[in-house]
Amino acid sequence: MPESKPRRKNKPRSQESQGTHSVDKPMPVWYKPVMFGLMLLGLVWIMVYYLSQTLFPIPNIGGWNIVIGFGIAMVGFFMTTGWK
């Protein structure tokens, strides 16, 4: 009858699958407020554009205000990939 492989007792199972990079650094204190702030700022930018009937936040660029608002919000959404 074949013998089973011996178990390693040196590392916990969670560290085995992660390799040597299992030490997670804590997130900076500013990360979450900036992330959520950018998402909200982008939303507010677009809302101001529509509610002011395209006069604000920047009157002379027209529809590019939507691109700017979505761009700001997308930076916040991309930050969520690094949030631990």
Rank of each mutant, 00 (worst) to 15 (best):
M1D: 08
P2G: 07
E3Y: 13
E3F: 15
S4F: 12
K5T: 12
K5S: 10
P6F: 05
P6I: 09
R7Y: 13
R8I: 09
R8N: 15
R8G: 14
K9F: 10
K9N: 12
N10H: 14
K11C: 07
P12H: 06
P12Y: 02
R13M: 11
R13A: 12
S14D: 10
S14F: 12
Q15C: 07
E16L: 14
S17I: 04
Q18N: 05
Q18M: 12
G19Y: 07
V23G: 01
P26K: 09
P28W: 01
W30P: 08
W30A: 08
W30T: 02
P33C: 05
M35I: 06
F36V: 13
F36P: 01
F36I: 10
G37F: 06
G37W: 05
L38D: 03
M39H: 04
M39S: 03
L43C: 12
V44K: 02
V44W: 01
I46L: 01
I46Y: 01
M47E: 08
V48C: 03
Y49D: 06
Y49S: 03
Y50W: 15
L51G: 09
Q53W: 11
Q53F: 12
T54S: 13
L55S: 10
L55E: 15
I58Q: 00
I58F: 01
P59R: 10
I61G: 00
G62T: 01
G62I: 02
G63C: 00
W64R: 02
N65I: 00
I66K: 01
V67T: 10
I68S: 00
G69S: 04
G69D: 00
F70R: 02
F70Q: 05
F70H: 08
A73M: 14
A73V: 11
M74W: 13
F77Q: 15
F77A: 15
F77W: 11
F78T: 13
F78N: 14
M79Q: 09
M79L: 13
T80S: 15
T80D: 14
T81M: 13
T81L: 14
G82F: 12
G82D: 11
K84C: 04
